[in-house]
Nucleic acid binder design. Sequence first.
DNA 1: CGGCGGATTGAGCAGGATCAACGGAGGTGG
DNA 2: CCACCTCCGTTGATCCTGCTCAATCCGCCG
Lengths: 239, 239
Amino acid sequence: MNPQTIKVACSNCNLRELCMPMGLKPEELERIDEVVAVRRKVKRGGTLFRNGEKFTSLYAIRTGFFKTCVATEDGRDQVTGFQMAGEIIGLDGIVQDHHTCDAVALEDAEVCVMPFDRIEELSREVTALQHHVHKIMSREIVREHGVMLLLGSMRAEERLAAFLLNLVQRLHARGFSQSELVLRMTREEIGSYLGLKLETVSRTFSKFVDENIVEVKQRHVRILDTDALKRIVNSQTCQ
Amino acid sequence: MNPQTIKVACSNCNLRELCMPMGLKPEELERIDEVVAVRRKVKRGGTLFRNGEKFTSLYAIRTGFFKTCVATEDGRDQVTGFQMAGEIIGLDGIVQDHHTCDAVALEDAEVCVMPFDRIEELSREVTALQHHVHKIMSREIVREHGVMLLLGSMRAEERLAAFLLNLVQRLHARGFSQSELVLRMTREEIGSYLGLKLETVSRTFSKFVDENIVEVKQRHVRILDTDALKRIVNSQTCQ
DNA sequence: CGGCGGATTGAGCAGGATCAACGGAGGTGG
DNA sequence: CCACCTCCGTTGATCCTGCTCAATCCGCCG
């Protein structure tokens, strides 16, 4: 609605090893700077885009934390992912030329706005960028396969364990602790993502605490036994 | 393994309104013919590609029916989709340069092999193709959002109803009946896709039969009351 | 005809949902 | 600064959907 606009450059962004320019050569990197039009700030609770809105751009998260969610007419609602710095958001909009999900900031955030027609234009010239765009989309498809596996075949404890491991691994890649994290989302949002009710999420946290696998104080989580979590995920309860 | 190779052209394929060349102009269509290297036959039960195999090509299904499935080390297995004529398969392989799921033919099938480097090359020249490739990938992402919604928030009857409606709608777009279909997959495969056990799938079918919503004879399904299925999907049982 | 894989159906069980009460943290306004 | 309110999280009791285990049936193929 009221986009703050600040000129910026990918070429000296501290996220360049994670984000859009990942793996590009210096001269290609400079070309990418042409893609990022402006930055935009989104307040906590605000939406970056909404289901039904016209699709124009992809967004690279610079700071902050988002959730994306889809909804049915009857008001049901499913969180399809949580996104953090360096991740690309908005890919759902390409196919229909308008967005099919909401992107909501779970904390104050700033994103780089990348008009999609510019991305397409530039990736016709810069092969590495073209390939990178394809990889980003493929990565999202593979990620979703993982979520389908989780939703389709895991029990509550396995889901939560997998969720925690995934979060902490991504945070670690961004220089945060391997064992400590602050959840940016409510129990209900975790539950929606994992296909569980919020009470079940809460109970499962408590169970992990009882078993000395984690410490939980509200949204602060400290992982005491990563291996235990891994064992829970890989326990072939079925079969 | 033993690819049958037959030269072909998209430009006179009867699937061109559904498949890769969708919406391209005649002159662009001719360029696309360069992309499809060969066709390949896959026998029922055979795999088009497997988890771990090197990624080289996308595949357009000409005839037949596939499932794709991912697996965990501990042997758990999740069907991530069913694909039919005109649909593109293999997008998962781009990001890691090797496939992360299996594609298994559920009936004798024939696919058009499209080497991905050729696709990238050509889509640098043909803007419409470039955009189409992006749309195909985005479409897959949106489809998976839908599956996540299904797995995360629907009960058994809603899942099966949504599944049947989706299948019959896609078949109808290919010129088949709106009300009659032959399932190419087992109850177990349906169950895996829908996050249910095969017995639950079977029971839910029986329930629909009792309610005169469908007729079921083994894999032959006739939909008697499409609206009832739609109502089941949209029944806001939660809230 | 017999064997086998797939489908159906039944009985009993349990994991997670639902309903409900309560507690604690953080924000707001008097 | 404190009182209040609201939102979020925890925990308990009970219920029910879908899972498990098991028997049987059906259609197909050799």
